[in-house]
């Protein structure tokens, strides 16, 4: 697919445009939010407790009188950061392991796939819990690293399948016959054909990392300092926000997460239509 062709379909795909708009808005909110909020510190006690949304508190306050909007924009920052770092790391590891296994084959493949299959069966959250529980101090960065190092197995398997099918194609054989160097074959012939796929994998990993972090935060293993959407939900549950009918505290943070992840999925479907002509609705 040429660049021009790509741009043509990209700009005409409603799903992708919609997703870009929503993600753009959320990123904007995460970057600018902390500055436009009247309160600086998400943990500061700035008003009365139990306040529904109002002019002073755009999204209300929690039981202790902390401002929900301020917490939300700080939490959004954390979530996007974890998604970016954790998602990238998982994609890179999965890409490397899957590619080496598929391209080299032989005992390296057997060994790597055995390791991948083992990690794949172990539930990521269980693994995250056992690691995070023994870390006395946890930051957002550490959390992203643990998520990245545990979320790659399915990517490795998928990439391996791709590499296996690509390396036996005619154009790769042709490059081999003409004595091109292996590295040139990898980066010149195979990688360009995988890039669209890898990009879509990254989007899924991005969403997956955000969901994993939310789960960890909710279960009580979030960052020991700082604010995140998962921590907001955990506190809301621990302090009976649901029973007290404080929807602005218990519902809003999760709605933002759902919006992010749903948008990523929609973007993925849209990109699939762009890269895969069979699926286009034209």
């Amino acid at each position: 697919m040429t660049r021009k062709e790509f741009a043509y379909f990209f700009l005409r795909n409603k799903k992708v445009i919609f997703a870009m708009c929503v993600l753009g808005f959320l990123t904007f909110l995460a970057v600018v939010g902390p500055y436009i909020s009247p309160y600086k510190d998400p943990l500061a006690f700035v008003g009365l407790g139990y306040q529904p949304p109002s002019k002073q508190h755009w999204l209300g306050t929690n039981t202790f009188g902390q401002d929900i909007f301020t917490q939300l924009v700080h939490g959004l920052r954390t979530s996007l950061f974890v998604g970016l770092v954790g998602g990238s790391l998982a994609t890179v590891i999965g890409l490397l392991i899957g590619f080496v296994a598929g391209y080299r084959g032989g005992w390296i493949d057997e060994l790597l796939m055995m390791f991948t299959n083992i990690l794949m069966v172990i539930p990521t959250l269980a693994l995250l819990i056992i690691i995070a529980a023994y870390l006395p101090y946890r930051g957002i960065f550490i959390q992203s690293l643990i998520i990245g190092f545990t979320a790659w197995p399915w990517t490795a398997r998928a990439v391996r399948a791709q590499a296996l099918s690509l390396k036996t194609r005619e154009f790769v054989d042709l490059a081999r016959i003409t004595a091109r160097r292996p590295l040139k074959i990898i980066f010149g012939e195979i990688m360009p054909n995988m890039m669209s796929y890898v990009f879509m994998v990254f989007i899924l990993q991005f969403g997956g990392a955000i969901l994993a972090a939310t789960g960890l935060d909710f279960i009580g293993l979030g960052p020991t300092r700082g604010m995140s959407l998962g921590i907001m939900l955990q506190q809301a549950t621990l302090w009976n926000a649901i029973q007290l009918g404080m929807w602005w505290w218990a519902i809003t943070p999760g709605a933002v997460i759902t919006l992010i992840v749903a948008t990523l999925y929609i973007m993925n479907t849209g990109l699939d239509e762009i890269f895969n002509p069979k699926l286009r609705e034209m």
Binding site: G207, L211, T214, G215, F218, L233, A236, T237, I242, G245, W247, A250, I251, P253, G254, A255, I257, T258, L259, I260, V261, A262, L264, Y265, I266
Partner: peptide, 20 residues
């Protein structure tokens, strides 16, 4: 869109939503 929203929701958040 309904399916996508459902599957994108964190399980426990959907629980909170239903509980509320």
């Amino acid at each position: 869109p309904i399916f996508y929203t459902l599957t994108a929701a964190p399980y426990f958040w959907f629980g909170i939503l239903l509980a509320w």
